[in-house]
Design a binder for these strands. Structure first.
Lengths: 339, 339
DNA sequence: GATTTCCCCGACATCGATGTCAAGAAACTG
DNA sequence: CAGTTTCTTGACATCGATGTCGGGGAAATC
């Protein structure tokens, strides 16, 4: 089937291709009657402009790049879905580009993509969004960037985030309110800036309650299940045990929970375990995890919105949208038994 | 920074743009010395051809579409990673396009994308790959398609798959070998063709063992956690209980497991529970799930490979790559206690 | 009524690559 | 050695849209 071009539309509407272009892009200086009649023909013929030709001539593209370190994690996948939905609504398309710093050729790969695709915008997620060198590359190629939850270089680009620190504080206060005093904390992957923010929020709440967790109650994890399990084993093999464990994400919280179960430690009766993210798996555990619901879908959605609108109005301050989180209380946290 | 074009390269190499194009695309009829010297200039200048211009003039595109119903599921995410890796290696880029049959405008959305992007290939995953009407649309737009694990219209397009039926039979035989006779089965979402194949594999093994599971031991699920949980509750509230449950995927198996735990039924001592997929969550359960490892990463990888190579050699039979699975025995299955 | 201004609209060049074709050189044929 | 085929190469048109610019007509100004 031969695709319909702007010429076909122009011919049938009895105007020049340029006028059709004007109508499509909502430019001024077209008589209302003509505008309407052209719009009708466009609809009738079900005409869609070719994205390549458009990108080529206008050098702005209708592709938005979504850059991930690991597109498999549930975190990334939900952001992706939000981004896809909004991109669709705005007539853009999403190109997924993985970036792995482990590979020494990541720079060339990235430059390749930028050359080849002439992206109309890029969305960077944690942890790759914190590398100044990477932001420089985007700058050099004039690709507008929006970052999701960056932790460094805060003033450089527009961003979309939630307040991890406040959320972690809320969660810690939830545990304190249940009577817990001996609360252990499992830190996240230090390359993700959110790890530090969550730790600070926890620390804030503890300090405000006049407590300061000793070093043996603070474990280093990497956001993955296994590290949570290891942290759990280390914590539960000590005496006395903490009465609550706050893991920096759900996957690690699940690891802690399984370490508890394998030692016959009842959750939440003997120990409360809470996570962060409200990943799908939070509801697949038993008991279900108390956690913080991250607005991931909305983060992806807003990021696309921002990167496209920014395109026009470039240096209007430093847009930063902060999205609300939610403390979700489920079965894995309960009152402190020891007092 | 002004991008480098083919002209710049041509000028510096002292040849015509067309010759540079020939070298880049590996066409014949270029003197070896010239070919080499041009290649050197290309490398020196770090030149990358603009994908838009290429797509526009040659009307073959360097974009491959990956079509999902739900890009969030772990299943889809792993396929996506495999596809991304291979696309990168072959100099293509992946555009993700969600399709939801629930939306009545899915046809227009799809046609929009095809018009706008002129895809060089499309990869369809289950369940959307089984709809003839959808395949027709791709045909009409001359977009070569590769399907991952299709269940219908088997002769229409090249495909990549694993043998669900054999795998399910293997799993059932594993349970039979452990001494189980009263095995319940939780079926998957009927819109996924794999559901039927897994059921048949289970049925094969049972029949071969001279058994036929009564209707009350066969539950209908939809591949989601909740449906597994519900099925588990229904199964465990009956007397006698089955001694093993085979759920058609891991997520449902987890649901069954949690239903068991909430009733103090020990796994695997009192009941064995097995899944299918080897999703990440299979290792996050306690005990860890016995399951079938699907070669999802490889499926994505092979699909991209196939869709691109097919482009050249079009009607060479009906390529169908079948990838190996693996039975992964973990803690959730054990010998039958009742005999 | 003459001049200026503004609004519409289309002709044409352009973006950056590849397809076509023909010319010239080289290699082969008889 | 003339004639034919094959190999190299570049000029030019093309893909499908948008940017630039200029012309014609209506409205506004003097």
């Amino acid at each position: 089937m031969k695709p319909i071009t702007i010429k076909d539309v122009a011919e049938r509407a009895g105007v020049s291709p340029k006028t059709v272009s004007r109508v499509i892009n909502g430019e001024a200086h077209v008589r209302p009657e003509i505008r309407e009649s052209v719009a009708r023909v466009v609809a009738d013929m079900n005409y869609r402009p070719n994205a390549f030709a458009r990108g080529l001539s206008s050098s702005r593209s209708f592709l938005v790049g979504l850059f991930f370190d690991d597109p498999v994690s549930g975190y990334a996948a939900t952001i992706q879905r939000g981004a896809l939905e909004q991109a669709r609504a705005m007539g853009r398309h999403i190109v997924i580009e993985p970036i792995t710093f482990q590979r020494s050729d990541w720079r060339e790969r990235l430059v390749d993509s930028l050359h080849a695709l002439r992206l109309g915008g890029a969305i960077l997620t944690s942890p790759i969004c914190d590398r100044a060198e990477l932001l420089d590359i985007f700058d050099r190629h004039d690709v507008p960037v929006v970052r999701i939850a960056p932790g460094a270089e805060l003033e450089r680009t527009p961003q979309v985030r939630m307040d991890d620190r406040d959320a972690a504080r809320d969660m810690a206060e939830h545990l304190l309110a249940l009577g817990h005093r001996d609360i252990a904390f499992v830190r996240g992957n230090p390359t993700h800036s959110a790890s530090e923010r969550r730790w600070l929020g926890f620390h804030d709440a503890m300090t405000a309650a006049g407590l300061s967790p000793p070093p043996e109650r603070v474990m280093q994890g990497d956001f993955r299940f296994r590290s949570g399990f290891d942290a759990g084993e280390a914590l539960f093999d000590r005496h006395p045990r903490p009465t609550a464990v706050f893991a920096s994400n759900d996957e690690m919280a699940l690891g802690v929970m399984i370490a508890a179960m394998s030692r016959q430690i009842a959750v939440p009766r003997a120990v409360s375990i809470v996570g962060f993210d409200d990943a799908e798996i939070a509801r697949m555990a038993w008991p279900q995890l108390t956690t913080i619901r991250q607005p991931n879908y909305a983060l992806g959605w807003e990021a696309v919105d921002l990167v496209i609108h920014q395109h026009g109005t470039n240096t209007t301050g430093d847009p930063c949208r902060i999205l609300p989180y939610e403390l979700v209380i489920r079965g894995s946290s309960g009152p402190c038994a020891v007092s």
